[in-house]
Design a protein around this nucleic acid. Structure first.
Length: 435
RNA sequence: GCGAGCGUAGCUCAGUUGGUUAGAGCGUCUGCCUGUGGCGCAGAAAGUCGUGGGUUCGAGUCCCAUCGUUCGCCCCA
């Protein structure tokens, strides 16, 4: 029985054209976050399973963790998210690191799920976190970074929106104001998460199931329909979390983030979030979903036995981003980072070596075709491989010290001396020869 | 964990109520063209119809199982 050529279920092979796209996305991420002073870190793919038990969402740990025992009997898991790992790393050097600490990473993460659109078993995720800032400036910065990333991918205004809420406000409204018990609170939280997704009638029916008093439904509606903080009912407006949200909105407005707004339905899956939370939504009807999000989790670092550390961060997955970019036609044409194939004519492989070395030294990325196929086949293959051009090298060129170069995009051809070729590498690559 | 659709050539797919040697387009290879690609013309190679059972005189087609894949639910990125 032949071996399968498929990649493992829910995981992807990255052929060079896929890798170019991945590099484009990663490079864009890096450029933006590094412009805010974030530094890259990394951690092992495998962690002790314990670090996920306390605060990662229930379903992820129970059903979606790649967990196993190693040969030494240790219970370990492939990371389903990066936040516990970075919290562990920061906790380990809690006293010696300089705050505010700005770190990012682009880990690959694994969750055992049924693959579907926008969700695979292995994905990559940009994670950024700022540690040691308790005030709203950290929340502001992180959301601003998210916004700048969307702009860096040329996402047009209106193609996405940033929805912001506060777990403290949700807690206050459900727990203190409506006096919901644990189960009601849990169910209500899950329900409002689906506010934008399900029919209003279904929402009403389910809400009335959960809420102990019928009139609470109307109160919930008012809160969910509040597109800005002034629309909130008076009894919520005075809560401290609203004051914080209000400061945050003002800061975002002043820094040009016009895609952000208050939305009480934002919940986030992870249990560790404990204050401001946000999600970035694709607004197109074909893909109306949460692309990524994050928030404040002041309690997580402290779980590692050190003084707690205020933290804000977010994670942005490559799969959902790619869906977004494809849908909005924002993917650039990416070419291989090779300048040319040098087509050797005749028995010149050995004699060509010093010339090739010189051209490479000068900065050209050159592949060599020393096969004995016919010339047209070699040109066809260079074109098929996506090469910008070819350089012909035979006895004639070697003895004259000239290069016949052909730009495959334009079909233009020119004979250049070695000096001219070296001097005009840029023009050569773009097909604009100088005479 | 639950539900639905789809698996036919390297790729995208067609294949009639079950009926001889299973087709197309693209791609590949050869020639037209011995140092010049993309277009054209002529020709060629390439498929145990995902796999295993079953029904039938006869299965790519119907049934069951299984694997793969896609989509939805749950959950989430």
């Amino acid at each position: 029985m032949a071996l399968s050529t498929h990649a493992y279920k829910g995981a992807r092979d990255f052929y060079p054209e896929d890798k170019r796209l991945q590099k484009y996305m990663f490079d864009t991420w890096r450029r933006v976050v590094e412009s805010f002073g974030y530094q890259e870190y990394d951690a092992p793919l495998i962690e002790p399973v314990d670090i996920y038990l306390a605060k990662t969402g229930e379903e992820i740990v129970n059903d979606q963790l790649y967990a196993f025992e190693d040969k030494g009997g240790r219970k370990v898991a492939i990371r389903p998210e990066m936040t516990p790992s970075v919290s562990r790393m920061v906790a380990a050097r809690r006293q010696e690191l300089a705050y505010p600490l700005r770190w990012y990473s682009i880990p690959n993460l694994w969750r055992y799920e049924r693959p579907q659109r926008g969700r695979l078993r292995e994905h990559y995720q940009l994670n950024i976190d700022i540690f040691g800032v308790a005030d709203i400036s950290a929340d502001h910065e992180v959301i601003l970074v998210a916004e700048r990333i969307m702009k860096a991918f040329d996402a047009p205004a209106g193609s996405y929106e940033i929805r912001i809420s506060s777990r403290k406000l949700v807690n206050y409204f459900f727990r203190d104001h409506l006096k919901l018990d644990d189960k009601q609170f849990h169910d209500a939280s899950k329900l409002i998460d689906r506010w934008h997704k399900i029919e209003k009638a279904d929402f009403e029916a389910q809400a009335k199931e959960i809420l102990p008093v019928e009139s609470y439904y109307q109160q919930l509606l008012v809160v969910l329909n509040s597109r800005n903080l002034d629309d909130l009912p008076a009894e919520l407006k005075d809560h401290a979390s609203v004051n914080e949200l209000s400061k945050l909105m003002k800061l975002l407005g002043e820094s040009g983030v016009d895609s952000a707004g208050f939305d009480f339905s934002v919940i986030r899956g992870m249990d560790y979030y404990d204050d401001i939370i946000f999600e970035v939504f694709d607004t197109s009807p074909e893909n109306n979903r949460s692309m990524f999000g994050g928030g404040r989790y002041d309690g997580l670092v402290g779980l590692f036995g050190v003084e707690p550390l205020p933290t804000v961060g977010f994670g942005m997955g490559d799969v959902t981003l790619q869906n977004f970019l494809e849908l909005h036609k924002l993917l650039p044409e990416l070419e291989p980072e090779v300048d040319a194939t040098v087509i050797l004519i005749g028995e010149v492989y050995e004699k060509a070596q010093p010339v090739l070395a010189e051209l490479r030294e000068a900065g050209l990325n050159l592949a060599v075709d020393a096969t004995e196929r016919k010339l047209d086949a070699k040109i066809k293959n260079a074109a098929k491989a996506g090469m910008p051009g070819v350089i012909f090298l035979g006895e004639e060129e070697l003895s004259n010290k000239t290069f016949k170069v052909k730009h495959l995009g334009s079909g233009k051809e020119k004979v250049l001396t070695r000096d001219k070729l070296l001097k005009h590498i840029d023009q050569w690559v773009s097909g604009e020869f100088e005479s």
